Simulated scan of single mutants.
Amino acid sequence: MSSRDSRVDAYIERSADFAHPVLEHLRAVVHAACPDVEENIKWGCPHFGYKGGMMCSMAAFKHYCSFGFWNHKDVVGKEPKEGAGGFGKITSVKDLPSKKELTGYVRKAMALKDSGVKKERVKTAPKPAPKLPDDLAAELKKNTAARKHYEAFSPSCRREYVDWINEAKTDATRQKRVATTVEWLAEGKHRNWKYMT
Rank of each mutant, 00 (worst) to 15 (best):
R7Y: 10
D9E: 14
D17E: 15
P21H: 05
E24G: 11
L26A: 11
V29W: 00
V29E: 01
E39G: 04
I41W: 00
W43Q: 10
G44W: 02
G44I: 00
Y50K: 05
Y50F: 13
K51S: 14
G53Y: 10
G53L: 13
C56H: 02
C56V: 12
S57L: 08
A59W: 05
A60I: 13
G68I: 00
G68E: 06
F69M: 00
F69I: 00
W70H: 06
N71W: 03
K73L: 11
K73Y: 09
V76A: 06
P80E: 08
P80I: 03
E82K: 12
G86Y: 01
F87L: 02
V93G: 07
K94W: 01
K99H: 07
T103P: 12
Y105Q: 00
A109V: 02
A111Y: 06
E120G: 08
V122Y: 12
K127F: 09
P128K: 13
P130M: 10
L132D: 02
D134L: 15
D135M: 09
D135V: 06
A138G: 10
E139I: 04
E139V: 06
E139A: 15
T144I: 12
R147V: 03
K148H: 12
K148L: 15
A152V: 03
S154G: 09
S156Q: 13
R158S: 00
W164E: 03
I165N: 04
E167G: 10
E167T: 11
K176R: 15
A179M: 00
A179D: 02
W184H: 14
E187K: 15
R191N: 05
R191Q: 08
N192M: 10
K194W: 13
Y195N: 15
T197Q: 14
